[in-house]
Simulated scan of single mutants.
Amino acid sequence: MNTPHEPTRPSAIAGYEDWPGYVRNRPRHQAATAAAQDLADALGVPAAVTRPDVTVHWAETYDGVTTSQLSWQLGFGPRTTGWLVRPAGTSGPLPGVLALHCHGGNKFGGADRLVELPQSHPSAAAARAGHYDGLALATEVARAGFAVLAHDTFAWGSRRFDLSVPPWRTASALEARKSQWREDGVEPTDADLYNAAAGFHEDTVAKAAGLLGTSMAGMVAHDDLAALDILGSLPGVDPARLGCIGFSGGGGRSLTLAALSPEIKSYVVTCMMATFGSLLPAYLDAHSWLLQTPGLWKLGDWPELTATSGADGFLVQYALADQLFPEDGMREAHRILESIHLAGSYTGTFWPGGHVFTAEMQNEAISYLSRALGAGSPAVHHHSPLSTP
């Protein structure tokens, strides 16, 4: 019983109190190969529940695409929101692409940053402007002839933790941030407040995951595998032609998903490729727990983990002025990838500029997937990247 001097300690995993029971009672994800199983075990990926029922909330057609809001309930935590985007007037079967949102320091939102919606939250618009050259990636991919599913993953958007009463360590750090905002004359938005709290809280989530025998990346992979299963089951989607695409943290998710699922035939990793060694000592702090799972390096370097995938081919796009990766680490990763993959299965392109998925890079990525998966209307490629080394 609490005394007046002992305030109730808030939940450290509010909204996810059923998460420990779910993970502890689930078997591990069963991968198709021994190498993929090693990765699943290292990340601690729980086996997904039987394919959940999908609810369609609304569908609207505008600017040549039909967008539907979907939702489903996984075995724990809040309900997942996703959006299916496809060319208007098509019945399929179309190749399917899972569009994987970035980390971006924005957990208030999730996949909404990738989709043109009748009404977008300002945080989604800001994410598009800052990271995607103002474009809605999932909608752009759909316009090229794909059925695209973009979903909120574990800890983002509809799947975010409830930090309305933050745990004490997070609350203390958040108060310091609020004090700085007041000093600077900044009036934070609801998204600003949540994202600041979530940034501090990610360490707590990673600690909880480790205690449970999983990881932040493993739980994200769990949600992504479930979404891929849903995408392949949707009417008008060809389950034999599935791919995925992601920028930054979404690029890491793309690599991991392709390594864990033989259903992925082609994929794109943008601004998320370098050697682990190049991150030490100066770049380690630039990255989240999505990349830095304890013990992952024992399985091989980050580029070497692509050998686990059975995809027919993949594209990696590097930004030479990327603030999160040193150029020597990116170029070394490119050399490793060329050495371990057959000619034609790996494509690496180097682009000028910083950590942004530019319109030109998106055009290249969409054209790549169009050729690989047989979509009907490849995007126009406007500009060429810098030549590879």
Rank of each mutant, 00 (worst) to 15 (best):
Q119A: 15
V141H: 01
V268R: 00
A240Y: 09
S367D: 00
L290D: 13
T214W: 06
E140L: 03
T204H: 09
G96F: 02
M216P: 00
P294W: 08
G277C: 01
L320E: 03
W83G: 02
G251V: 09
A88C: 11
R51M: 12
P167K: 00
L337M: 10
G376E: 13
Q30N: 12
P78Q: 05
D112S: 15
V380E: 12
A311M: 11
S278M: 04
S387W: 11
V141E: 00
F314V: 02
L137D: 02
L70P: 07
S370Y: 03
I230G: 03
V380L: 09
A111I: 08
Y346C: 11
D322V: 04
R331F: 07
F314M: 03
C244P: 08
A126W: 14
D192R: 14
T61K: 02
G82H: 08
A226N: 05
Q30A: 15
L242I: 10
P52Y: 07
S384Q: 13
V85K: 03
V268E: 01
D41C: 11
P10R: 00
P167E: 14
G109I: 15
L94D: 07
L114H: 02
I264L: 11
E187N: 10
L257K: 09
L299W: 10
T153P: 06
H201C: 08
E332P: 10
S179K: 12
